[in-house]
Computed example of a mutant assay.
Amino acid sequence: MATLLIVEDDRKTNDAICEYLKPAGHKVIPAYDGGEALQLFRENSIDLVVLDIMLPHISGLSILHEIRRTSTTPILMLTALEDEYTQVRSFDEQADDYMTKPFSMVLLGRRITALLRRSGQAPLPQTITFGDVTVDFSGYTASDSAGKIDIMPKEIDLLRLLVEHKGLVLTRSQILDELWGTDYPIIDRTVDTYIKNLRKKLRLDCIVTVKGIGYKYEVQS
Rank of each mutant, 00 (worst) to 15 (best):
D132I: 04
V135S: 00
G147S: 03
T129Q: 14
D136P: 07
F130C: 01
M152H: 09
S145Y: 08
G139P: 06
G131D: 11
V133N: 05
G131T: 02
K148W: 04
V133G: 01
T127W: 00
A142H: 00
G139F: 11
D144F: 04
R117I: 10
F130W: 09
V133A: 01
K154F: 13
A122P: 00
F130L: 01
V133F: 06
A142Q: 00
V135I: 12
A122V: 01
T134V: 15
P153C: 06
D150Y: 04
K148N: 08
I128K: 08
K154D: 12
V135G: 05
D150F: 02
A146V: 11
T129L: 05
S145R: 14
S143I: 04
I128S: 02
Q126S: 12
E155T: 05
A146P: 04
Y140W: 07
S143H: 12
D132M: 02
Q121S: 10
G147N: 06
T129F: 01
R118Y: 05
P153Y: 08
L124F: 09
T141G: 06
A146Y: 07
Q126L: 12
A146E: 14
T134K: 12
I128M: 13
T134R: 07
F130M: 02
K148H: 11
T127Y: 00
I149T: 07
P123I: 03
T141Q: 14
V135E: 02
G120A: 03
I128L: 07
S138R: 13
T141V: 00
T141L: 10
I128A: 05
F137K: 00
Y140C: 09
D150E: 15
S138Y: 09
R118Q: 14
Y140A: 04
F130H: 08
I151N: 00
L115F: 02
D150M: 10
T127S: 09
G147R: 05
S138T: 10
D136Q: 11
L115I: 02
F137L: 15
D136M: 02
S145C: 08
I149N: 07
L124V: 13
S138W: 06
A122N: 12
L115H: 10
P125F: 09
A142T: 03
I128Y: 04
T127Q: 15
A142W: 00
I149R: 07
K148A: 15
A122R: 11
V133W: 02
P125W: 12
G147I: 06
S119I: 02
G131H: 09
F130R: 01
R117Y: 06
M152P: 00
F130K: 00
P125Y: 06
T129D: 03
G139R: 15
L115D: 04
S119L: 05
G131P: 06
G120I: 05
L124W: 03
G147M: 01
M152I: 11
A142D: 01
K154Q: 12
I151T: 04
P125C: 08
Q126R: 13
P123A: 07
Q126M: 11
S143Q: 13
M152R: 11
K154S: 12
P123M: 04
L116V: 10
S138L: 15
F137Y: 03
P153K: 11
F137C: 11
R118H: 09
G139S: 15
T127R: 13
Q121V: 05
I151H: 04
G147T: 03
P153M: 06
G139E: 15
E155W: 04
P123N: 10
S138N: 11
L116P: 05
S143D: 09
P123C: 09
T127M: 14
G139A: 15
D136A: 10
K154W: 12
A142N: 03
D136T: 06
